[in-house]
């Protein structure tokens, strides 16, 4: 997609670096008490995602009509989709976390989808961003578990009906399993977004390298793959939100 943007013509038709699209550019360098808080291209696209999501959801509901306009029905569809997801997976008392899950889903979806726009930057293709989101979910869920069940939440790591010697083995296993959650949550999103964009970049490079005569085959592949990537962009946001719901449910109702 964005293959010709950065150095497509470098050194006589050699392939452009497919990783170059993930570089962070500091647009406005800001130093915040010794911390580097520069406004980067990543921040720019996060901001665009925020504006798109909030702008769309707020503007589409301007009419608040009972018979929705097209934009309004899309907004309502998203609302119902996430509301049903939370209700199905967590139950009615989980609905107080609905705004969080909704924000998470919309933010990831917007970032993924904006990443499909040529010349854009995919925020979610950075492991630190996805890990930040996953860490918020992980820490939040753990805190909720401890608030609801107190120290009893530690029973979550102790399988019931197991003899004591086995516990020495099973508790670390449960702990590792629990710690895997944020890692798998973040790595899944990151890997999917990065792999897809790298792939598109590489094939974009093929199109340029093969030129007008031979470039059609990789171009056709790219068109198909772009469709798949849009699906993946949605699916990953969905999976992230569903897993958040499932972890919430585990913390609130504590049963395996």
């Amino acid at each position: 997609m964005a293959s010709t943007e950065h150095g497509g013509e470098q050194s006589g038709g050699s392939m452009p670096d497919p990783m170059h699209q993930f570089e962070i550019d500091r647009i406005i360098p800001i130093n915040f008490f010794g911390l580097d808080a520069s406004f980067t291209n990543s921040s720019k696209w996060m901001l665009i995602a925020l504006l798109v999501v909030a702008g769309f959801l707020i503007l589409s509901m301007r009419g608040r009509s009972l018979v929705p306009t097209r934009a309004q029905s899309v907004a309502e569809l998203a609302y119902e989709f996430i509301a049903n997801m939370v209700r199905d997976n967590v139950g009615t008392e989980g609905m107080k976390y609905f705004p969080f899950v909704f924000t998470l889903f919309m933010f990831i979806l917007a970032c993924n989808m904006l990443g499909m726009v040529p010349y854009s930057f995919t925020v979610t293709s950075h492991i630190i961003v996805t890990f930040g989101l996953a860490a918020v979910v992980f820490i939040g869920v753990t805190v909720i578990g401890f608030i609801r069940h107190g120290v009893g939440f530690l029973k979550f790591f102790v399988p019931s009906g197991v003899p004591a010697p086995m516990l020495a083995l099973l508790v670390p296993i449960e702990l590792i399993s629990y710690l895997t959650r944020p890692v798998s949550l973040s790595v899944r999103l990151f890997a999917n977004m990065m792999a897809g964009h790298t792939m598109l970049k590489v094939f974009g490079g093929f199109v340029v390298a093969l030129g007008f005569l031979g470039g059609w085959a990789p171009l056709a592949f790219m068109v198909a793959f772009t469709g798949l990537e849009v699906l993946v962009a949605f699916l990953q946001a969905y999976v992230f939100a569903v897993l958040t719901c499932i972890y919430l449910n585990d913390a609130m109702h504590m049963h395996h």
Partner: peptide, 23 residues
């Protein structure tokens, strides 16, 4: 939901090993 499950399982399995190894 099934596709969601499929996406979960393989990575969960691999990353548990990675997390265990890292610890």
């Amino acid at each position: 939901r099934g596709i969601g499950y499929a996406l979960r399982m393989s990575l969960d399995m691999v990353l548990a090993v990675v997390v265990g190894g890292a610890i």
